[in-house]
Computed example of a mutant assay.
Amino acid sequence: MKVHMSPRSHRMAIVGTGGIAAAHAEAIRASAGRAHLVAAADVDIDRARTFAAAWDAPHAYASLTELLREEQVDLICLCTPPGQHAPLAAQCLRAGVTVLVEKPPTLSLAELDELAALERRSPGHVATVFQHRFGPAAVRLRRMVADGELGRPLLATCATQWYRDDAYFAVPWRGNWTTEGGGPTMGHGIHQFDLLFSVLGPWREVSALAARQARSTDTEDVSMALVTFENGAVATVVNSVVSPRQTSALRFDFERATVEVEHLYGYTDDDWTLTAAPGHEDVLARWTPGSGGAPSGHADQLAAVLDALDNGEPPPVTVEDARRTMEFIAALYASAFTGERVRSGQIGPDSPFWLRMNGTAAPWDKVNTQ
């Protein structure tokens, strides 16, 4: 009789113990023993120790360097401010350790391409946290699209309209091109339009605008884009941190149905609806959602990452997957700041928007320096 061995429990660590780190620790705890937290690290060692104690991690360190020297780990969750993502992820790769990086994975396409080159020489991998891809409704929708059950995608709308006050931006690294990489396009709407791309596939061209409407930041507080896709679909993408009624909303219009979701920071099956086109009511039976459940979150993605590690595969979301989303951000800023349409593949090493998301400077920066 063949004996099936249970997958081993993966040794994990969390670097950066701010607010989002708790979501990673909760996902590890919810993994039913597939992973366990062995260490936490933070430049504030007291905060690292408090976090480690709260989540039953036996060790706390003041740096990633110290953690890698003292611990044997299979996977590191990188939860630091965005400006530290690229150098710390590179350090993990050089140590041969796989790293799951909070969004945005880097501050620029240049940094992401450097990580991709380093990954090719390392046994470790880089995966980006885009957890909304992994909720059961999104998985179901992608399957139905791939199977042609909904017909051709025609139109989509994607809105991340949130509210962040001046106190939120008092944190030094927020609202700054050099430390956050961008405004709501980079730090807030990224989850929602990444989900859009995971359903509709490669985008082809973007025409956009970005503005500072109410916040005294270096970056934009609003952006809007018109997007065309290789499959012929068209979409609008709106990102905001000045909207008092907050929402995260996606609508997909296919030939045979409209599929919609509205939530804030995580959706359940109950947040999704499918409206059949006349004569195509049969698609309703194939949607068959579950009931309620936990909101889409880090636990769903961590389960997929652990599956990949158990199978010896690169964990999702790969650098290549994340690059499509990051390239869109660079293209949106390039279009907004130059007034030109930008095509996929257009932004390369010869473009200032490859090196930094604001290119040579945002228009309001130029006004301020005149």
Rank of each mutant, 00 (worst) to 15 (best):
130 F>R: 11
130 F>A: 11
131 Q>C: 06
131 Q>A: 08
137 A>I: 10
138 A>C: 12
141 L>N: 03
141 L>R: 05
143 R>P: 06
143 R>Y: 04
143 R>G: 06
144 M>V: 07
145 V>G: 10
150 L>P: 05
151 G>K: 08
154 L>V: 05
154 L>F: 05
158 C>D: 15
159 A>T: 09
160 T>H: 04
160 T>G: 15
160 T>D: 14
163 Y>T: 01
165 D>G: 14
167 A>R: 14
167 A>N: 15
169 F>V: 07
171 V>H: 02
172 P>W: 06
174 R>Q: 12
176 N>K: 15
176 N>R: 14
178 T>A: 15
178 T>I: 11
179 T>G: 07
179 T>R: 09
181 G>V: 06
181 G>I: 13
182 G>W: 06
183 G>N: 12
184 P>G: 14
185 T>C: 10
186 M>Q: 10
186 M>F: 10
186 M>V: 12
188 H>W: 11
194 D>W: 15
196 L>D: 12
198 S>V: 04
200 L>K: 00
200 L>Y: 06
204 R>P: 02
204 R>A: 00
204 R>N: 05
204 R>F: 03
205 E>W: 01
206 V>F: 00
208 A>F: 00
209 L>M: 11
210 A>R: 03
211 A>C: 10
211 A>W: 08
211 A>D: 09
212 R>N: 08
212 R>Y: 08
215 R>Y: 00
220 E>W: 11
222 V>A: 05
223 S>Q: 14
